[in-house]
Amino acid sequence: MNRGDTDTDQAGFYPPPPKDGDGEDHRALPVKTRISANRGVWQRKRLLAVIVIVLGLLLIAGKFFAFANKVAHLQIPKDPRADAIVVLTGGTERVQQAIHLLGEGHAGRLLISGVHPGTTPKQIAYMTKTDMPLLSCCVDLDRVALNTEGNALETARWMAGNGFSSLILVTSAYHLPRAQTELASVMPGIRMIPYPVYSSELDLKAWYRSPATTRLLIREYSKYTLAGLRVALVRAGKALGL
């Protein structure tokens, strides 16, 4: 075998240079061309990421505006009737409204959920301008719950212990969607009548004019979204037997 034959065999042994879909040899491209091509790919990926982020923010903003509009226009039921009334603490106006409903006979018993351990029935009577006999006969105080999830758990225990099957849920209008989500998750068979309380200090219909009200609604919407996600995950886990 001569030298020329050896060179030919070695050249035939190595695979041909890699080519892309159009059959061109990338190794033949100038360095600047390859850098420009890589930069173009990176820019397209960055543009796609920006588009996804913008669309996500628009979706979140749209859902927030829908939430703000919903809580600003919740209807107060005209003549609600149920076995019990449950009010979630967080403002004197909530408790006053719940006691007013109790006094008018809309239900036979009231649970005030989330009462501070140091608060006495006499203090509640004084703050809400309520007669002590009504508090003594028909009002129970839950001092265990520390948040809305706890309110739901304690309410479920109280409802089951008293054999109640329906309730009027009293809380602030902006808090009502989250409260309903939490209570419905632990009491799926209970008939619930939402009763929104509108504070004289909050203008929910013009929330965008007040930075404080805007921040309040953003926080509440975030909590409401997280509560809904947690409840959905718990349900999915139960469905899968986890």
Rank of each mutant, 00 (worst) to 15 (best):
D20R: 05
D20H: 01
D20S: 04
G21R: 09
G21A: 13
D22H: 06
D22K: 09
D22R: 12
D22A: 11
D22G: 02
E24Y: 06
E24T: 10
D25I: 09
D25G: 02
D25F: 09
H26P: 15
H26V: 12
H26S: 10
R27Y: 12
R27L: 14
R27M: 06
A28G: 03
A28R: 09
A28E: 11
A28N: 09
L29N: 04
P30R: 11
P30S: 15
P30V: 02
V31A: 12
V31S: 05
V31F: 14
V31D: 14
V31G: 01
V31Q: 10
K32A: 13
K32M: 11
K32S: 14
K32Y: 04
K32T: 14
T33P: 02
R34D: 02
R34L: 15
R34E: 07
R34T: 06
R34P: 00
I35K: 06
I35P: 00
I35F: 01
S36W: 03
A37S: 10
A37K: 11
N38G: 09
N38A: 10
N38C: 06
N38P: 00
N38V: 07
R39T: 03
R39I: 04
R39Q: 11
R39V: 06
R39N: 10
G40K: 03
G40S: 04
G40Q: 02
V41E: 09
V41H: 03
V41D: 04
W42N: 01
W42M: 05
W42L: 13
W42Y: 05
Q43R: 13
Q43A: 10
Q43G: 00
Q43D: 13
R44I: 02
R44E: 14
R44N: 08
R44H: 08
R44W: 11
R44M: 08
K45R: 14
K45E: 14
K45N: 14
K45I: 10
K45C: 11
K45W: 11
R46W: 06
R46Y: 02
L47P: 00
L47Y: 02
L47H: 01
L47W: 04
L47N: 03
L47A: 15
L47C: 02
L48V: 03
L48E: 04
L48S: 07
L48M: 06
L48K: 13
A49F: 04
A49D: 08
V50H: 06
V50L: 14
V50F: 08
V50Y: 03
I51A: 15
I51V: 15
I51Y: 06
V52Q: 12
V52L: 14
V52P: 01
V52T: 10
V52A: 07
V52N: 02
V52M: 07
I53K: 04
I53A: 15
I53M: 07
V54K: 01
V54Y: 05
V54E: 03
V54M: 04
L55R: 09
L55T: 13
L55Q: 11
L55I: 14
L55E: 07
G56Y: 06
G56T: 08
G56W: 01
G56H: 03
L57K: 05
L57N: 05
L57H: 09
L57V: 12
L57F: 12
L58R: 12
L58G: 12
L58W: 12
L59T: 14
L59Y: 12
L59M: 13
L59P: 01
I60W: 13
A61T: 15
